[in-house]
Computed example of a mutant assay.
Amino acid sequence: MEIILAAPRGFCAGVNMAVTSLDLAIQYFGTPIYVYHEIVHNQYVVKTFQAKGAVFVDELSEVPEGATVLFSAHGVSPEIREVARTRKLFAIDATCPLVTKVHLEAIKYAKEGYTIILIGHEGHDEVIGTMGEAPEAIVLVEDEAGVEQLNFPANGKLAYLTQTTLSVDDATRIILALRERFPWVESPPKEDICYATQNRQEAVRLLSQEAEIVLVIGSQNSSNSQRLRELGREQGKDAFLIDGVEDIDRNWFKGSDRVLLTAGASAPESVVQETVEWLVREFNATVREHAVKEENVHFPLPKPLRQLVKDGSLVE
């Protein structure tokens, strides 16, 4: 067996910032630290922080008044921020700056009287937060069939935005369908799908040509990880999404396969290495890392934590 280890893979800058923020918050404020929704969509990360004393909640009513709460990387709506203020919570906002960009675009378009078509997955934390910025102005579309059901006047102001973790190919198809039906629809100055999502998809698209099997490390509720598995299958490969080695079925492999191994943007490198070690041990696999692009993106910590680090209260 040969393992083709894709790069880039794993943590993006937004996930790294959010995870570091929660680590530092636990260090400074002690536990319990409350987190609104999963800090990132990865079960390994969530369980690791639960063991450290983080409490993940789906409603702010579960957080005691005056406590510290950290908003996850996926962002929250203005309504949630207001509830946090009402309950006198000390809120640390670990929203990915690329998600914040989409929020700001939604606010801008709504103020200018546009109807906004948001391309994304219903119920995803990021979509809920973005729609909360201007619920009266945003219509959600999940696929090309949804585009066919839209009706807007020809003189209406129309713009589209996208969830940051979509499949680039899927988003492109939906955008083309939108432009065909509504040629006057406006787009954001810079596309919304994040650099890391695009880079990981590009790596799978290119490197899967050399493999028989695509193994993606990530959780089932991770949108960008699901897209990587789907992309592998679209390339005609056997593709599987796993949280870790405990999810691997030996019957997937013949023993002489070339396996493309990658990880979604919220999956830790430690789990990648555990998977590599398992495949090497079980199948005497060799490992070849193949980088298709370099990533050197870093996002600053949320303001409260930046100040603490600056004051010397915390050591990064």
Rank of each mutant, 00 (worst) to 15 (best):
131 M>T: 01
8 P>Y: 07
295 E>V: 13
290 H>C: 13
173 R>D: 10
212 E>P: 03
133 E>A: 08
295 E>P: 11
170 D>E: 10
99 V>S: 12
14 G>H: 05
221 N>S: 07
200 R>M: 06
26 I>Y: 05
288 R>D: 08
303 K>A: 15
196 A>F: 11
210 E>M: 06
109 Y>A: 13
29 F>G: 03
316 E>T: 12
255 G>L: 12
291 A>D: 09
54 A>R: 02
182 F>Y: 08
106 A>M: 10
46 V>D: 01
82 E>C: 03
5 L>D: 09
238 D>I: 11
32 P>T: 11
273 Q>I: 04
99 V>Y: 10
284 N>R: 12
141 V>D: 00
138 I>E: 05
133 E>C: 10
315 V>H: 13
148 E>W: 09
296 N>A: 15
270 S>P: 00
257 D>G: 01
16 N>S: 12
125 D>C: 03
141 V>Y: 00
82 E>F: 03
290 H>L: 14
102 V>S: 13
202 E>M: 10
133 E>T: 09
128 I>H: 02
14 G>R: 07
289 E>T: 15
169 D>W: 02
265 A>I: 06
133 E>G: 01
262 T>Q: 03
226 Q>A: 03
171 A>T: 03
145 A>G: 14
149 Q>V: 08
250 R>L: 15
117 I>S: 02
136 E>L: 12
58 D>I: 04
20 T>R: 15
203 A>D: 08
160 Y>C: 09
75 G>D: 02
131 M>N: 00
133 E>Q: 14
245 V>L: 08
212 E>F: 03
207 L>H: 00
148 E>D: 15
118 L>D: 00
283 F>A: 08
243 D>C: 11
261 L>Q: 05
233 R>C: 12
252 W>Q: 08
314 L>H: 11
258 R>I: 07
150 L>S: 11
171 A>H: 04
66 G>T: 04
264 G>A: 01
281 R>F: 05
105 E>L: 13
277 E>W: 07
32 P>L: 10
244 G>E: 14
15 V>C: 09
52 K>D: 00
101 K>T: 12
139 V>G: 13
273 Q>G: 04
20 T>K: 14
263 A>E: 01
204 V>I: 12
184 W>S: 14
32 P>A: 08
311 D>E: 15
